[in-house]
């Protein structure tokens, strides 16, 4: 199969200016600025085939967003080559833009003070989407994402989950070949995350849309991607099948409970108490032994609680394990 995204020896450097402090300092800044060069992406290579869903994961500031910004034509690379659909994004930015969809989890790509419907209408004009195609797409997206509930609401008034649904639908209105998702589930609750994942899966399967997804959330990757590319400190650490690193994803979760009262015995089945201070208890458990819902309902039956949260394993943990076990690039 032919590659739709090709990245070859790609690097991006940023100049970071150091600011001198104080009044005199800011005056001096005007005339001479000291800078350091930060390499955000360092000679990376990968190819993505049409129709793949690839998880592009890594710790904070690893270079994920910078890569996405180069592939979408926002940033010009310092060196190296890249092609999306055979086009060089920063040189043929407009042509590339016509064939891709982009969603940033951190902020909307819609018009902040316009209702969702107006934003969609504008996009219909911008991408010159035929009315028939526009209506059909809208109907289809509505089925899964239930946009009609907030279609007349200004984007600025949407909840994070609604906004993300609107953003993803908007990015797909013009039937792009590639969808770039930068942290699409950040800050969402479990139900909202699941809805978005289901939609991404459907779009990928039914329309063969290639998806490149950056995320912090390992469950996004587990549920969506067959292949992962792991980037750390601007370099690719692993590129291969999810199954190859699945064993590295810790199965253990951490459940943190704040009890409303002091109980003599707070032990629970299939869990290990990792930490106990006053009324806060950390439990370690594995979802293979006991389901989260069973665990929570048992707690609610027996105790009064103030608060409860579950910590998922973090990518940093996998990165650490990869370094430790030296499975470097094993999947290739």
């Amino acid at each position: 199969m032919q590659s739709i995204i090709e990245v070859e020896d790609l690097s991006k450097e940023f100049k970071v200016y150091r600011h001198r402090q104080g009044f005199m300092g800011s005056f001096v800044n005007l005339f001479s600025r000291q800078h350091a060069v930060v390499r955000a992406v360092d000679h990376i290579n990968f190819k993505i085939r049409r129709g793949e869903i690839v998880g592009y994961i890594g710790p904070n500031a690893a270079g994920k967003s910078t890569t996405i910004k180069m592939l979408t034509g926002i940033l010009v690379p310092t060196s190296g080559g890249l092609r999306v659909n055979g086009r060089v994004p920063h040189e043929q930015r407009k042509e590339n833009a016509r064939r891709i969809g982009v969603v940033f989890g951190q902020r909307t790509h819609l018009w902040f003070d316009l209702p969702v419907e107006e934003s969609f209408e504008l996009l219909r004009h911008i991408y010159r989407i035929p009315m028939e195609q526009y209506r059909a797409n809208l109907e289809l997206f509505n089925d899964v994402l239930e946009l009609h509930n907030f279609f007349q609401t200004p984007v600025r008034q949407l909840s994070l989950g609604q906004r993300m649904r609107a953003d993803i639908a908007a990015a797909l209105l013009h039937d792009p070949d590639v969808l770039f998702l930068d942290e699409p589930t950040i800050g969402l609750d479990v139900v909202a995350k699941e809805r978005i994942r289901q939609f991404i899966r459907e779009i990928n399967q039914e329309r063969q849309v290639t998806v490149l997804l950056t995320t912090h959330d390992l469950s996004d990757v587990e549920k969506l991607c067959e292949r992962v590319i792991l980037i750390d400190h601007a370099r690719i650490l692993f590129d291969g099948k999810l199954t190859a690193i699945r064993s590295l994803i810790p199965r253990e979760r951490l459940l943190i409970v704040d009890y409303a009262e002091r109980y003599p015995n707070v032990e629970l089945r299939h869990t290990v108490i990792a930490y106990h201070e006053n009324m806060r208890v950390h439990y370690r458990f594995s979802p293979d032994n006991i389901s989260i819902t069973d665990l929570i309902s048992e707690i609610l039956e027996r105790f009064k609680i103030m608060d409860l949260s579950i910590q998922e394993p973090e990518i940093e943990e996998i990165v650490r394990l990869i370094y430790e076990r030296k499975v470097l690039l094993e999947g290739q």
């Binding site: 910004k69 979408t72 034509g73 930015r93 407009k94 833009a97 982009v102 902020r107 790509h109 911008i126």
Partner: peptide, 14 residues
């Protein structure tokens, strides 16, 4: 500052 210029760069317009 708001990153809205990023949004303009992903559109097929000048």
């Amino acid at each position: 500052v708001r990153g809205e210029f990023d949004n303009m760069l992903i559109r097929p317009l000048g």
